[in-house]
Design a protein around this nucleic acid. Structure first.
Lengths: 165, 165
DNA sequence: TATTGTTATACTCTATAACTATA
DNA sequence: TATAGTTATAGAGTATAACAATA
């Protein structure tokens, strides 16, 4: 969907002219831009950390979700993670082919998902990696700022403002 | 890159079992997940708001950047926004074809970018839409939380923790 | 009639490699 | 040698439409 990644952030000399090859960036200080940057950076970092167990963030998330909800069905995972039914198919297929997830028919149209022993292992490791990953970020924030950040996200998530300007 | 969108957030009944078709979601409360959700929601909302002027967020951002940096070159924009040279080409091509951006050769290999009159108009409108968009979000935060959010983003952006768990 | 899983498809965003022409 | 712009290409992520089987 989005825009703006960028490694050049102007913090001080944001007046009017540009220095070197840096541009005056009228969006750098915007909340949406900054949220996206922070999110992208964290996600890239998580992706790198998860390479240790050969899983992408989305795969690790699905495995953890199945681990916490044994015999859930594919569609439930999709709804929970905001992934469309059609896009769940190749994801689950890959995980079953790697013997991490098992499918067992429940009623002829739905299929219950559960973790194989290998999947349980991966789930535990993913959990450790994700927890460590989060901690590396959270420990850089003071308790007050961490709390305010959670409060801010609560509020921003709650519902979206009208889409029309 | 990532995961986790999801429209089903469990706030209260997060204990152990699932209600209805909702799943216990072990990642919902993680910072990375929540940042991504907030960012995605804001971006989708901005995209909807910008449809009024027929621009995508990335296009509006580029136009605003050119407006603030007349005669900048394509590569500078790419560096500022974290978009690779190769991916800048079709973006700028589309904007020039729509008569929003003008290219003028400066030294035989670089090309200066500037806004056409139509582009200036689009820039002004994009600026208004983006500003209104930001305000709709920011006005929901108290000054204290807004400040803490900015502080948190300052810290999270600063540099990334080591990628290895 | 609505839901589950599936296939096919398409569009966006991102990334790399390779080429050219310039500096 | 490094940079600017370009082309081609590939991989993710996401979206819709349509279908069969089932509830």
């Amino acid at each position: 969907m989005l825009i703006v990644l960028g490694n050049n952030i102007m913090v001080e000399g944001m007046e009017k002219k540009r220095a070197d090859d840096q541009l005056t960036n009228p969006v750098t200080q915007r909340l949406g831009y900054r949220l996206r940057r922070a999110s992208s950076a964290m996600m890239a970092n998580l992706g790198a950390a998860l390479e240790a167990i050969g899983l992408r963030p989305v795969e690790a998330t699905i495995i953890m979700l199945i681990g916490a909800n044994p015999d859930c069905i594919q569609s439930d995972i999709g709804r929970t993670l905001g992934i469309k039914r059609a896009n769940m198919v190749p994801l689950i297929t890959a995980l079953t082919q790697r013997d991490l997830v098992r499918k067992s028919p429940v009623d002829g149209r739905s299929v219950a998902l559960s973790l194989t022993p290998l999947g349980e292992e991966a789930c535990a490791r993913a959990n450790r990696i994700m927890t460590a990953h989060e901690q590396r970020y959270e420990e850089r924030l003071t308790p007050e700022i961490r709390q305010a950040l959670q409060d801010a996200l609560d509020i921003l998530e709650r519902e979206e403002p009208g889409a029309t300007a």
